[in-house]
């Protein structure tokens, strides 16, 4: 390899182990594809996981006191914070009893060198859109349950997620954070006064949790070299993948809600079947 010469030239000193580590990291930077291929040939991934293994998940809810509900999710090194803010608005004329659910994901410049400061990047827009689709299609929150007074006042739930550290698979992490924040949300009891036309809330009555319906969980996979299925891809693996498949399941029953695929469809193995089976297995593990 020509990289060996580069590495040796760069480090005249240092122990043998250090030199080897440096050579490996230079190889990774210069030939990411070959680097990943060699790991996969041995049946492992660069972070030591097996191909179908998931990174560790941790969920911490209710730590933000200014939000009505909040969650912090870590999926390996990927970290997402999500906060729910409830506000009151007039409903749409054609749907007087339906509230609003407004999920947004922000990928700020701080979470990865890939992102630039400024308005939402294309990645953030696509992810926000997919998250909205996942939350609405699963019916996680019946919008009628957000009604305060038909035609006059409804709740608006702004579900804002911010990525703090982007190490791949932001979709799964964010969906988990959003659902956990919704589960953690407590709304005050609100009443609409016909005579004053004002909606007021009470501090005396205890806050109530949301009436959540089906809980969606998602599992994302990447397909490398059209035959290797990598579960829960990292930021290093993501740009090298041909295809990404996200399987959305109902947490309780394990039934499919949706399957989406991005990228080339020419998978030589039965990738979809493998992904769905692995997603079911992961869904069961996540519940315990």
């Amino acid at each position: 390899m020509s990289t060996t010469a580069v590495a040796e030239a760069a480090t005249p000193g240092g122990s043998k182990e250090e030199q080897e580590a440096l050579q490996a990291s230079i190889f990774q930077r210069l030939h990411p594809r070959a680097y990943l291929e060699r790991f996969l040939a041995e049946g492992f991934r660069p972070d030591g996981r097996a191909l179908d293994a998931w990174r560790e998940v941790s969920v911490n809810t209710g730590s933000i006191s200014t939000a009505d509900g909040s969650a912090l999710v870590r999926l390996g090194n990927t970290t997402v914070v999500c906060g729910v803010k409830a506000e009151i608005a007039e409903p749409e004329l054609d749907a007087g009893a339906r509230g609003f659910l407004v999920p947004n994901l922000d990928l700020p410049a701080m979470c990865s060198p890939r992102f630039k400061p400024g308005p939402p990047s294309e990645d953030a827009q696509v992810l926000s859109d997919r998250l909205t689709e996942a939350l609405t299609s699963s019916g996680v929150l019946p919008l009628e349950s957000l009604c305060i007074h038909p035609g006059k006042a409804v709740w608006v739930l702004y579900v804002d997620a911010t990525c703090i550290n982007y190490d791949g698979n932001a979709f799964d992490a964010t969906l988990l954070a959003m659902v956990a924040a919704l589960k953690n949300t407590r709304l005050p009891v609100a009443t609409y006064d016909e005579t004053t036309r004002r909606t007021t809330c009470s501090r005396k009555e205890p806050r109530r949790p949301l009436e959540l319906g089906r809980i969606p969980v998602s599992a994302s996979f990447g397909i490398f070299d059209s035959n290797q299925v990598l579960a829960d891809p990292t930021a290093f693996e993501e740009p090298l993948l041909d295809t990404t498949i996200s399987v959305l399941l109902n947490e309780g029953s394990g039934e499919l809600i949706s399957v989406s695929q991005f990228g080339l469809g020419s998978a030589s193995c039965d990738a979809l079947g493998v992904c769905i089976a692995q997603a079911r297995a992961q869904g069961k593990r996540a519940r315990i």
Partner: peptide, 20 residues
């Protein structure tokens, strides 16, 4: 259009009673 939008106007909840 780069974000998911809510209704045109919405307001933070008002409380009838002062903080207890």
């Amino acid at each position: 259009r780069r974000r998911i939008n809510g209704p045109e106007e919405s307001f933070a909840p008002l409380y009838e009673d002062e903080e207890a």
